[in-house]
Design a protein around this nucleic acid. Structure first.
Lengths: 154, 154
DNA sequence: CACTTTTGTTAGAAAGATTCCAGAGAACCT
DNA sequence: AGGTTCTCTGGAATCTTTCTAACAAAAGTG
């Protein structure tokens, strides 16, 4: 009963629900994001996938990623150089980001729903917003960069 | 005992501590960020300040903002269009961001230090990172856009 | 104080990233 | 299958950010 791509088909269902057409390009990009934990920037996604689909256009990668972000399937993570990395958001999590090497590590925290609730509660009272998503990033040094003896300016 | 620019001089002290020279340009940009709650993008800062300092260069705005981010005086907030907005970070807070109009509202939460501690604790155990900063963004709709009857795609 | 060294600024050019566009092609519904 | 509508492509256009070299200003030295 173990479908290897159970989550992929779930994600595709989500696309169908939103009346978004499922094209080979979208499937390919989604699959790439789901099977890679490296939080790639646009350029990397394009370079990896271009060999598999010779005609894939860079514009399509941009368009598709923007679409996925709008649909909430994928989220953007700010990059040290002002760039953006992409992250398949199948299960809620937050991010540890290394300020030296730029690595992004996912953190799965059982308390996240509760924390999320607290934040939204306070924020709603103070601002009157209604919320539907929460992004958290912790900045610091990864174990490798710590071992190298890197220290931060501030 | 209410210095109107108490926080400005505090921030300038922070620059001095880091042996960063205080130039008119840096002072101008810092002052602008502190006295505006609009979380401006680079372009807006430049447009606003150019009349006040005719020779101000766009490159200097970029350089200065990057410097402030490195020093932790200012933080970057991801923008809906992949751009970046800048936010003077005098007191810890997080952000409510409207997915329709892009407005950013600061949330000051008394529980933030505690929440921050919980997040860092879990993240440290799971990843081995050491942390020194935490960014939280909540995405949703601001009261004005709610009143307009805007609803979100997802 | 002069002198030396370091650091910051400018303006324009260059590099890089992202979006636009029109026509060709593909997905979905019945 | 047919037709409608949406999507993709590839190159150009645009926008954003960084680089460079020359100059200016400030800090440190004795």
């Amino acid at each position: 009963m173990k479908e290897p791509d159970a989550t992929l088909s779930t994600a595709l269902d989500k696309l169908r629900e939103q009346h978004v057409r499922i094209t080979p390009q979208r499937k390919l990009i989604l699959d790439y994001l789901m099977t890679h934990e490296n939080h790639p920037p646009v350029e990397e996604i394009y370079k990896e996938l271009a060999p598999q689909m010779a005609t894939l256009s860079l514009a399509t990668v941009y368009n598709t990623l923007n679409l996925f972000v709008e649909l909430g399937i994928v989220i953007e993570i700010p990059n040290e150089n002002g760039g953006v990395r992409y992250d398949f958001f199948g299960r809620p999590h937050y991010h540890a980001i290394c300020e030296n090497c730029g690595k992004v590590t996912d953190i799965y925290d059982p308390n996240l729903p509760q924390i999320d609730g607290m934040l939204q509660n306070t924020a709603k009272k103070q601002s009157g917003y209604s919320f539907n998503a929460c992004h958290i990033e912790l900045y610091g040094l990864c174990p490798e960069c710590q071992a190298k003896g890197v220290t931060l300016a501030s």
